[in-house]
Simulated assay, not measured.
Amino acid sequence: MRKIKYIVIHCTSGPALQTTKAIKDYWRNSLGWKQVGYHFIINADGTVENLAPIEAVTNGVKNYNSVSVHICYKGGVGSKDTRTPEQKESILKTIKKVLEELKQHQPIDGIKIRGHRDFSPDQNGNGKVDFFEWIKDCPCFDAKAEYKCLQGAKAANDKSLP
């Protein structure tokens, strides 16, 4: 099992009704990816599709994929948080499930939960990634703040990582 440092939350930035097949076809045909972008994708009704085992490296965040597990909800159109109540519940359950699985292989106190946008560079050097520095709006809400309660003290206090 690889060592995980991040659970990264994403949105598809498209309609919640788009099919997973269409998303996979886009990755394969338009981006040329051989692997999927996320480990889990969450439909509008809250059903969770497992696209890859957490041991697999997927294509969620460039330069961080080997140390990340990726969870995505369908939606996020126009940079708006379009999560349904069912998606919100499923994201939370999926994060908890991933942490439970990881706990069997590594300490989880240092795992950080972040949105894709939190991996944007701090271009003005003020020690934080401001909204105008985001290279993506994904996941269209502040995952870092929303899931802070699921992170251990070590992760919350570590300033060296996004």
Rank of each mutant, 00 (worst) to 15 (best):
E89C: 13
I95N: 06
E101T: 08
K103Q: 12
Q35K: 13
V67K: 06
L102R: 02
F141N: 01
W134P: 02
A56L: 03
Q106A: 01
W33E: 04
N43Q: 12
H116T: 04
S66R: 14
E89V: 15
I135W: 13
N59F: 00
I91R: 06
A22S: 15
K97D: 12
S90P: 05
H70N: 12
N126S: 11
C72T: 14
A52G: 05
P162L: 06
S30E: 15
H105V: 00
N43H: 15
D118Q: 07
C72G: 08
E146R: 14
K112M: 08
A56H: 08
R2Y: 12
L99C: 06
Q123Y: 13
P53R: 08
R83C: 04
G115T: 03
V129I: 14
K93Y: 12
D122Y: 07
N157I: 00
N65K: 03
A44S: 14
W134Y: 15
P53C: 07
I113P: 02
T82H: 08
G37F: 02
N126Y: 09
A156N: 09
T58F: 01
P107S: 10
N59I: 00
D130F: 10
V36S: 11
P15I: 04
S30A: 15
K93L: 14
K74P: 05
G46T: 04
S79E: 11
G76F: 05
P121F: 10
D142N: 13
T84Y: 06
E49H: 14
N43F: 03
P162V: 11
D81G: 14
P15W: 04
A16W: 00
W27P: 00
E146V: 11
D158R: 05
G152F: 04
S30F: 07
I91M: 03
F40E: 01
I41E: 01
V98I: 15
N63Q: 11
T47A: 09
A16F: 01
N126Q: 09
N29M: 12
N29L: 15
T82K: 10
K24F: 06
A143Y: 03
K5L: 15
R28N: 12
G127F: 06
V8S: 01
A52T: 04
V8Q: 01
D81S: 13
F131C: 11
A56T: 07
D122E: 10
D158V: 02
D109E: 13
H39I: 11
T84G: 10
S13L: 12
Y147C: 13
V36P: 09
L161A: 10
Y38P: 01
P107R: 03
A22Y: 03
Q87C: 09
N63I: 04
I71C: 09
K144L: 09
D45Q: 13
T84L: 12
R117P: 00
K24H: 12
R114P: 04
I95T: 02
T82M: 06
K128F: 10
L102G: 00
D142P: 02
L102N: 02
L99R: 06
A156F: 06
D109R: 04
G110H: 09
G46Q: 07
G127M: 04
L17G: 11
K96G: 05
N157R: 11
V69T: 07
F40G: 01
T94C: 10
C149E: 14
N65G: 10
T47G: 02
Y73E: 02
